[in-house]
């Protein structure tokens, strides 16, 4: 779907300032055809701002971004014809019927009359709304609305798709279905850039970009990230009196990134072989009974927590 020679998304030293605040700080980025790139980061880290600049909704303060080969600052209209965008806010018209929303956005994107019928059918099918064309959009359940929003954003078959927290407020099953759609599109060569909060969603991405305070702090496939970011082995500890145990472990020199996960603690140590007996000894010495202590595979959430903690300058 994309010209073979152009890289769909290319950002070079992209900066966005709002007054004195630097929301996006020299971001460099490249996304290839058919790639699903996930933007991960805490609230206010600059994910949405980056996406909005790439869509031509915000003007970059410095740097350059080429989307579908066009400069977003200079040729936003050319960019807009080739991209689809869906934001965290549900942005269809709630007071219009399903079919009226589809027709409206088809009109906005100049979908040719010859394919209008076929595209409309496709969106209805994809969103599971066949037979509910004249339902008022606002009365649809969240997951359906959001699939409809996705359908409306891709009516013109864009080669690049920007999704800004597309699944916030949607139930897990709908989320899974949504991601199946995304992968189907990526398989056809669509480049997808998506921001998310959900760690399980991040696992669906081919490549992840971790953004913190406006900068890219890590990037790679989910597997690569887990390996490079942890620098040590992750232990899971189940014990009684979690609070005192947490305080205690934070005093142990070799134990890093001590964090509470549900009813257990996660701790990173340089080596599991020597780490396990040492931590067990420390805890028992203070009368804390350890029921389980073993190495586990780091989840993306661990990576995320440990990276943001390191960058915030707190040694936990």
């Amino acid at each position: 779907m994309t010209d073979h020679d152009t890289i769909p998304v290319l950002a070079h030293d992209l900066v966005k300032r709002f007054g004195d605040f630097v929301a996006v700080d020299h971001i460099n980025l490249e996304a290839r055809a058919g790639e699903v790139v996930g933007f991960l980061g805490p609230n206010g880290s600059g994910k949405s701002t980056t996406i909005r600049m790439l869509c031509g909704l915000l003007r970059p303060s410095a740097g350059q971004a080429l989307v579908a080969g066009f400069d977003v600052a200079r040729k936003p209209e050319q960019v807009r014809r080739r991209i689809g965008y869906m934001s965290q806010k549900f942005s269809l018209y709630n007071d219009l019927q399903v079919i009226e929303n589809i027709r409206f956005f088809a009109g906005m994107y100049d979908v040719p009359a010859s394919v209008l019928h076929e595209r409309t059918e496709w969106v209805l099918y994809m969103a599971g709304l066949v037979g509910r064309e004249s339902t008022i959009t606002g009365t649809l359940p969240g997951g359906w609305k959001q699939r409809l929003a996705l359908g409306c954003a891709v009516l013109h078959r864009p080669s690049i798709l920007f999704l800004d927290e597309p699944t916030s407020g949607v139930d897990p099953i709908s989320r899974r279905r949504f991601w199946e759609l995304i992968h189907a599109m990526a398989a056809e060569g669509v480049t997808v850039l998506v921001t998310t909060h959900y760690m399980d969603e991040a696992e669906y991405c081919n490549r992840l970009v971790l953004i913190f305070q406006g900068r890219i702090v890590a990037s790679g496939s989910p597997t690569e990230l887990k390996q490079q970011a942890m620098a040590g082995e992750l232990l899971l500890i189940e014990c009684d009196r979690l609070g005192p145990a947490l305080d205690l472990l934070q005093q142990v020199p070799d134990a890093r990134h001590v964090a509470l996960f549900g009813k257990a603690l996660h701790v990173v140590v340089p080596d599991a072989q020597t780490g396990i007996p040492r931590l067990r000894a420390v805890l028992s010495a203070h009368g804390i009974a350890v029921s389980r202590i073993e190495p586990i595979r780091a989840s993306l959430e661990d990576v995320f927590v440990s990276l943001t903690a390191q960058l915030s300058g707190q040694r936990t």
């Binding site: 869509c55 031509g56 909704l57 209209e77 807009r80 014809r81 991209i83 965008y85 869906m86 934001s87 806010k89 549900f90 942005s91 269809l92 018209y93 709630n94 956005f105 906005m108 994107y109 100049d110 954003a153």
Partner: peptide
């Protein structure tokens, strides 16, 4: 306010 303006702005509408 409801966000549809943003959605329209990313379309090629003049």
């Amino acid at each position: 306010e409801i966000g549809t303006l943003e959605q329209i702005m990313v379309t090629p509408i003049g």
